[in-house]
Amino acid sequence: MKLAFQDFQFDCQALTLSKDGRKISLKEKPAQILALLVTQPEKVHSKGEILEVVWPGRTVTEQVVFQNIGHLRALFGDDAIKTFSKKGYQWQLPLAAVTEDNESENAPEQPLSTEPSPSQSSENTPQADTVVVSKPSNLPWPIVAPILVAAAAIVGYLALT
């Protein structure tokens, strides 16, 4: 399944990302997290769930989730992924399914439903009509991203101590 958001297209099976038709380099683990988030955008994904899906059978700290989420935010903007304190992460940007017909042309895309599933508790999921998405600023991300990741690592470390 291919999904579109902002100027990006993401192939959830091949874990490939492109922007305006050009491939974007995305490492395997952030791509797997992105696939999890965008294929179930109505769900708040816990760190434990992300660790199970992306690092199955491996012992890694929750810090790797935080770092990879920071990498994705640096790429897509801070508004792309919302953090729910002590609950997890949820995709926030509008998604559209990409079909073979509209992949080569800029035809209007079919928006995906962001309605919570019946098994989903409404207290864990924000209402879709309350989401405010703004366009990311034109910051120099190759410079800003490492600073944000370092700051996030420090905050994460301080939160654990």
Rank of each mutant, 00 (worst) to 15 (best):
R58S: 07
V54G: 02
H71M: 12
P142I: 11
K2Q: 13
L95W: 01
Q92I: 07
R73Y: 09
C12E: 10
P146E: 05
Q120K: 01
F66T: 11
V54A: 01
F10Y: 14
I147M: 08
Y157F: 13
T161F: 12
G48C: 01
K19H: 07
Q32H: 08
P30G: 00
D129M: 09
D101A: 14
I154L: 09
I50F: 06
A4S: 15
E109Y: 06
V155N: 05
T39H: 01
V60P: 09
D79I: 05
Q9H: 07
P111D: 07
L160V: 08
L17M: 04
N106M: 05
Q92N: 13
L26D: 03
A74S: 13
N68I: 03
N106P: 00
T83Y: 10
G156F: 11
L72C: 03
S137K: 12
V44M: 07
Q13T: 12
G156I: 02
V155E: 03
D79T: 04
P126K: 03
F76I: 07
S104H: 13
G48K: 13
A80F: 11
T83S: 14
S113Y: 05
G21W: 08
Q110N: 09
W55C: 02
T39L: 09
F66W: 05
I81R: 08
A74K: 03
V133S: 01
K86T: 08
N106D: 15
Q120I: 06
S85A: 12
V53Q: 14
T39C: 10
E62Q: 07
L158T: 11
E105V: 08
G57H: 04
A145C: 04
F84A: 07
P146C: 11
E52C: 02
V131G: 00
Q40T: 15
N124I: 10
I154Q: 03
A35E: 04
D11A: 11
L139H: 08
S137G: 12
A97R: 08
I69M: 05
D79K: 03
I154C: 10
A4M: 04
L160S: 14
V155C: 04
N106Q: 14
F10T: 07
A159R: 14
K82E: 13
L148P: 00
K86S: 11
